[in-house]
Amino acid sequence: MHVHALAWIILAAIIVTMIVVDIVGHVRTPHEPTLKEAASWSIAYIVIALVFGAIVWAVWGPQYGQEYLGGYITEKALSIDNLFVFVIILSTFRVPRKNQQEVLLAGIVIALILRLLFILAGAALIENFSWVFYIFGLWLAWTAISQVREGAGNEDDEEEYRPPSIVRAVSRIVPVTDGFVGSRILYRHGGRTYITPLLLCVLAIGTADVMFAVDSIPAIYSLTSEAYLVFAANAFSLLGLRQLYFLIDGLLDRIVFLHYGLAAILGFIGFKLINHALHTNELFFINGGREVAIVPEPGIAFSLGFIVVTILITVAASLLVSRARGGEDAPARGR
């Protein structure tokens, strides 16, 4: 896939335009978005991502179009896990509801920059060291196991969020205001400049996304090795997170099988990466550095179908169980 510099410029222009629209249309006037507003903009972000996929399909062909679509759906599914952490962070910092939009947007922009660095580093590693697929695959397999353990854990135990070390270090060095000062991130008083908890929260969201990038970047590289498609899928999935947060933050506890669904996706992708590494094996201590082709590599269409079906089953099963549990609890609430 040959990507001209103009294609990168157009992608950057689209992303910047979306961020500017967010700032001017939503964040500049702090408010809590209504369900209708969140739903409308969530759909709009998905449509933009799909239109971009159609352009990729038309310009570079169906293979790359499917690779982008598979990557976008995967990133979108994995990004739901981000929302759990965002809920914890925003509640821990006690960010006023009307200011949550700007905090999320700023944090997501930081996350987008960090992910770009991860993507470029990952592309360089894959191009020069094909054995990195072994590491990516094993990491995702371990992450899948962790998701199963988390899903099987006590649902009543809420994980306590601890700000990343960089945030804690900043709060020790730089004076911090006792509370929020409107929507300011810096506050000048008595000849001193203070940072506000709003800035710390932004840093927390941006840096917390790093741990998700460690999982999601290897995951999408199993579907496409094109850095352009990887970054586009990540950008569109991240930029839609802000409105998605307000749309489903009250429904997250109803997706009771989310961890199992994500575990299935990550486990499949981990297997796919290791299988690909075996097919392109260069490590001398594995079959003498020769190819190991025991299991055929699944095609992009099969991978895309597996991901979509897994998501649909996870959501459908979760909603059915949540509804059943709600029915069981109804008599108790009525007493």
Rank of each mutant, 00 (worst) to 15 (best):
G61Q: 06
L273Y: 03
V51R: 04
I135L: 15
V24D: 14
F118Q: 11
A106C: 05
N128W: 05
I311T: 01
Q100T: 08
F302W: 10
Y194E: 09
D178Q: 13
I119F: 03
G327S: 07
V27Y: 02
M211P: 00
G65I: 10
G151S: 08
L244Y: 00
K36A: 07
A38C: 12
E67G: 04
P96N: 13
A277D: 04
G334T: 02
S322F: 07
G267N: 12
G270M: 13
N281K: 07
K272C: 02
A49Y: 04
A12T: 14
F52V: 10
L262Y: 00
G107H: 09
V109G: 06
N128S: 15
A58W: 07
E37N: 03
E226A: 09
F236K: 00
G250S: 06
V210E: 04
E67M: 12
P218L: 06
P30L: 08
A293F: 02
A111D: 08
V315M: 05
L247P: 00
G137C: 07
V174K: 05
V230M: 06
H31A: 06
G71N: 11
H31Q: 13
T280M: 02
W139T: 09
V21K: 14
T17L: 15
V132S: 13
S216R: 02
R335L: 05
I119Q: 05
G240K: 01
L140P: 09
R94M: 12
V202E: 03
L251Y: 12
L252M: 14
A49G: 13
F236S: 06
V87R: 10
W8E: 03
A169P: 00
F302I: 11
K272N: 08
V210Y: 04
